[in-house]
Structure formats: C-alpha cells, structure tokens
Design a protein around this nucleic acid. Structure first.
Lengths: 344, 344
DNA sequence: GGGCGCCTGTATAACGTTGTAAAAGTCAGG
DNA sequence: CCTGACTTTTACAACGTTATACAGGCGCCC
C-alpha cells in the first residue's frame, strides 16, 4: 500500500498540510518541525502522488516531443538532448512519433495522442498551416525544423536556406558544376522546402543549372530512399559531379549506389549531407555535412515551451535561429589529400 | 477554460455521473440519453481530464521505457516499436535514457525519474542484481536485453549465447581461424556478458583460440568505441582473420579502421555485427549481423508489463525468448561473389 | 502589561473523475 | 391498481494533493 500525506501526518502527529509544506519546502516551517516531519517521511518512505498533485495544480510535469521518426539518428539524438534539457527543469518527456504523416501530426498537435501534457514540441513534415490555425488545444506548442509556418507559434530551427546555400557553395568552390538535389518532398509544393530553395538559389546565383532533372523527389528520408533517388538520377543518363542530400542517411544511401556503380566519391561525385549524424563519420568515405547545433535546438525548444507555462504574460511567439556549421570530410575532399582519421 | 463533466452535465441537464457513464460507455444508458449527452459533449468540446481520472483509478495510462542510449539505432527502432505497441493498448510511452550508467539505472528502476507510471520497461547495462533485489517500488518491471538476472522479473530477450555462437560458427564455417571479439564490458565480470560467452564457447568447441588477446574491452558501444577497440587489437600485432562485434555500430567503426589501414573486408578480415541496424545495409561493404526480432521484443515487453496491470493474479515471472536470425551480407562473403545490392 | 503584528501550524474546501449505493422510473403479472 | 423485479439515473464520497482562510503563540512596542 502506498503511503500518503495522511499517513505521514498521523505518524508525525501533525496536520496533513504541514507535511505538504515540508515536502514543498514552504518557507515558514521551523527547523525542528521540518526535521520531525522529514523523519516520518523517511521512515514511511513517502513519495508524492503525482496524479493528485497534477489534478490540484493543473500541471503534469510532462511535455511531449513528437518527431517524424526515431530511426533517423538525428531525431534520436535530438530526443536525447530534449530529455536531458527537460530533466534539468524537473520535466519528463513523453515521446511520440508521427511517421511524418499529416494525419498523425494533426492528431498530435490537437493533443489527441497524449492528453496529459503541459506542452508540446513538434517537428512537422507534412502538417499544413491550416491544420494549426484551427487548433483548439491550449497547451503551448513549439515547432521544430525545416517547415516554415507564418503562425503565432515559437519555431526553433537553423536557417535552412542559408545552410543549404553554404553546402552548395562549398561544392561550387570545389569546382563542381552540376549539383543534384536528393530528397525533395514528393507531391508537395516544392518551394515550401527551404533546403531545395537554398540549393536552387545558390546554383542560380552562380549561373549553374538547377533544373528539375537534377532534383529527385522521394517519399521517405531513409537510406533506401536516398539510394533509390540516386539510382533514378543516374538512370536518366545525367552525370552530376556533386550531390546535395536532404539528410545524412539519404546521402549515405546514395553513396552506396555510387560505390556499386563504380563511381568514386569524391573524385567523380562529391556529396554533402545534412544533420551530421555519427554514422557519417565512419563510412569508408566519411561524409561532409551541415551540422545543426542539436544541443541548442533541444535546449531552446524545452525552454520555449516552459516559458509559456510560467503563468505570467506569455512571451511573443518568436522564431529562434540555432547555429549550424559545415563539417568537411572526405566526401568533398578538394584533392587527393588523405583526410585525417574518421573523427572530424 | 477547460470544460469538465460538470459543465457538460449542466448543458445537457443531467447529472455528472450520467455524463461519465456516457464517456465510459457504461452499459445501462438509453440510446436517447446517450445521444443527448453526446451532443453536449461535442458542443462543448469536452475532453476528459486524465490527471483526475488517474487519481481516481490509480492508473495513469503511461509506461516508461528506459534505454541505455537513443543514439544507437537499435534502441531507437525498438523505442518506435514499443510506442506503437503501447498505443495499440491505449498506453503512452515515457522515454528515458540511462546512458548505460548504473546510477541512472538504479534511479529509474526505483521510480525516481518518473513517478507517474504504471509500468516500466528497462534495458539495463550496468545494473546489478542486488540493485533490483531491494527494489521497494511496486510498479511492474520488465527487463530487456543481454543482461541476465536470476530475479523474479519478466525478461524479454533473444538467446544471446546461442546467437553469438551462431555468428561465430558462421565465421568458422567460412574458414576463419582467429576470431576477435570487440566490445566486452570494461571493468565488469566478464561471464555476465552472454555474447562474449557465446563467442568463447563456440571457439573452444571448435578447438580455436579464445584468449584475452582477442578480446577488446570498451567503455561505450558506439562507432568510436568499436574503432578504438579494433585499432588496439591491431596495435598488438595480432592479425585476426575475423571479428565479432558486440553490436553493429562497433562493427562499422571497426570496419572504418580496417579500411584506413588497407585491410580488406571480408577478404582479409570478415566481420559480423549484432542488432542488424539499417545503417549496416548501406556501407561500402554491407554488414553481416545477428538480427533480433525487434518487433516481437517490443510487443512482448509491452504485453508483459500490461499483463501485470490487469488486477488479477500477477502471472509468474517469465523469461521470454524472442526470435533472431543471422543475416549474411558482404562483410562475410565466402568468396569474391558480388553480393546483391545493399538491401539484404 | 496590553494590544498589535508576525510567524507557525491547522481545518476545510477544492481539483475532476469514478465507484457505491440508493432513488427514481419502467414494466409485467396478479 | 398494486407489487415486485429490473433498469436507468442520481447523490455522495472518495482518490491525494495544495490554496485559502483562519486560529494560536510569541515577541515587540508603546
């Protein structure tokens, strides 16, 4: 049987509320009393019942983190950061995954998957602005990632357009002249994707081709999707001398195809990925990648959610840009210089 | 302001309990009444307050899943399975990670990280049997993975010894005679690790060496640890013709080192990993691996936890063996036969 | 030394839900 | 038309916690 405040109160010979005061570190409790009560607490092994506390306070101490998929190490690592950041504020993280499917994302954003949370951090893929506009839910929502909505919600991301341009710029600086893009979203309005836009802008600015034949749309964002997309481009007979991939797994999938077709990376085709997952540092050819500051993104996301729980004036919805940098590895080595070992 | 049963009851002109009965699909409610109440529910947008429900019922509808680290795709994928399996029973998953550190694992097993859960699924690394023996917590606990305790808790795992033996057997069948093991736990009683034991047993049975010079202990289980362990073995001058790694990331890390040192896989050194993560299917050399039935493990874990919440007699603690199979890929190709493409 | 205010501790009422038990309603049979 | 058996609905009391308002006790100042 679980012990409650009542039991402790009886044991210590004081009122329930006094025990509660001790538990909550209420200011006006004499040291002697605090000591006495604490002993009863320890003796009985009392632990607060959170459900009751939540009912009373209207807070649960839980925030939800909804990601497209955990299989992508970027999201897995991000989840780890968020869990730790939340723990630092005594919050616990409920994890959900949407598969990047709009229907699931709507469900999550409306709070139907988890109705027990104080706040929600959502990394949307297919979700449309309209889905959020008539959101009846009143739990604070913070958005993460590449999608860009003009809505009054906090949004934490890196500047995807600029990051993509930097990646493409890097390829151009290497002397590459035909840069393919792998991982455009199939069946969606293309400009909504900031990374494709950055790719296009930078190529156009350099007077290089950015036609549709260089873009491979995909359904998912895993290794297999990257491999399929790469294969598709090669089948058309096109021979780009560089590839910019939507993310690292896709880049790695593409490299696998190139390897099997006897094309060398980076000599024949240079590749840049996105997210800088660990895996990219340990292939036969290590992967150059845009490295978002995951640590900052996770921390900022948690802080943004919690800032809206303070009770006071909710802060203005804000768009926060996290840092990023381009990490150069073997997949874009300029010449035959032997790179350093694995680690970047 | 959030609407409660009281508001709906007032709106529909019935008692609170009747609304509750409708919400809970209580048997004895006339269709007409059900209809009327339902309309009020819809009109007001009522959603049950879970905190209150939990307080009343003593259940929260949340189970915790504590894994060593999310960065390892095996655990990430497992988490995805568990989340889905739990959702199928209307349960929600609170995710925690322990870093494989004993201290954290103890905290989790004692319920100090999340005190709001109905059950706990824990995949321990360093946790000792004694830590569990004086576990005062009464939430059901299910253990996952390679650690083997003689304690009255459900334990879901594959037969790690047999799986390891199968992996080593495969290498021996290939004609390899000196099989190293990468990823023994540094500073812990070695026999506790079933995979090392399987490795040793199979080699001994075949009359092959299984001395300490072939075992590389590590602190972690990531790519970098595998790379470091491989490098360490090679530094001793030893030249095994095969490697069995504790898991896939370590195997991939090891392959990176071999590649840089000009050793060919599988010609010079064959490699088998463990866990069959996606990543292993897309390297320049695809990775042979022991593939546990993650789907089954996740599902069984959830079912085992929930079975202990039924209220009736708790079932006997049981040890459940999930399926596994050895997936052969390029890293152990018998001859120069060109493997099929990436996908296994 | 009495009154005032501050500091501690206490009784009680919520928070929103569901289980229990009893009240009200329905219907058939005598 | 009444009785009894059953069905449907209701009132009320929990679950364990914290907020509010209040009752003592003590010291301080006049």
């Amino acid at each position: 049987m679980r012990v409650s405040l009542k039991d402790v109160a009886a044991h210590a010979g004081v009122s329930i509320k006094t025990v509660s005061n001790v538990v909550n570190n209420y200011q006006h409790v004499t040291p002697a009393m605090r000591e006495r009560v604490q002993q009863s607490i320890d003796a009985l092994g009392y632990r607060p019942n959170l459900a009751a506390r939540h009912l009373r306070k209207g807070r649960t101490g839980i925030i939800a983190l909804a990601l497209p998929e955990l299989g992508n190490p970027y999201f897995a690592e991000l989840a780890a950061v968020v869990i730790d950041a939340a723990a630092a504020h005594d919050y616990i993280v409920l994890l959900d995954h949407t598969g990047g499917r709009r229907e699931q994302e709507v469900l999550v954003s409306q709070g139907f998957r988890a109705r027990v949370i104080d706040g929600l951090i959502l990394s949307p893929i297919e979700l449309e602005a309209d889905d959020l506009r008539d959101r009846a839910e009143n739990v604070p929502l913070v958005l993460l990632g590449e999608r860009d909505y003009d809505l009054p919600y906090d949004h934490i991301a890196i500047d995807n357009v600029a990051a993509a341009r930097a990646a493409v710029r890097h390829l151009i600086d290497l002397g590459r002249r035909e840069v393919a893009f792998i991982g455009a979203r199939r069946g969606h309005s293309e400009p909504a994707q900031l990374r494709v836009r950055g790719w296009r802008e930078e190529l156009s600015a350099a007077g290089l081709p950015a036609d549709d034949g260089l873009v491979a749309a995909t359904d998912g964002w895993g290794h297999a999707d990257g491999a399929a997309a790469m294969a598709r481009i090669l089948e058309t007979g096109r021979r780009p001398d560089a590839v910019f991939a939507y993310n690292d797994p896709m880049a790695i999938g593409a490299m696998r195809v190139l390897h099997r077709q006897g094309l060398r990376v980076p000599e024949d085709i240079a590749i840049v990925g996105f997210d800088d997952v660990v895996e990219g540092r340990f292939g036969a050819v290590t992967l150059t990648s845009v490295s978002p500051d995951k640590e900052a993104i996770g921390r900022l996301a948690v802080e943004s959610v919690l800032a809206r729980l303070g009770g006071g004036e909710p802060p203005e919805p804000r768009r926060v840009w996290a840092d990023y940098r381009l990490v150069r590895r073997e997949s874009t080595l300029g010449r035959a210089a032997p790179g350093r070992d694995g680690q970047d």
